[in-house]
Amino acid sequence: MLEQVPLQRLGHTIIVTLQGDLDDATVERIERAVTDEVAKVRARGVLIDVSGLAVVDSFVARVIARLVGMVALLGAVSTIVGIQPAVAITLVELGVPMDHVHTALNAEQGMARLRRMWDDTTGYRR
């Protein structure tokens, strides 16, 4: 099933598109695949697009937060983009801590944010 993990590369960035109603095993498989891919291609950024998720429960949120932590340990930065308003409201009321997770409204702003973050960490401007 690994080949069905929705990953794309764009320069130094890996784009992960989460869509539909994901079961727990699929979410964990995607987490593993992204971590492997970041290490393999030495990606500098990961853009996680959740605009296709109508529901994010505490399990999915926890896996996403954990993934962001793993990516950071591998020396790359992550941004979550496209959280639906109803999902945002629900996550806040549910009480899921997402403090260390960077977010952006859409993919374009997310890419800009990733670029700023790695400029900050490397002091390198292009």
Partner: peptide
């Protein structure tokens, strides 16, 4: 929003 909360 109410539906999303319910499903969650």
């Amino acid at each position: 929003t109410a539906a999303t909360k319910l499903v969650t």
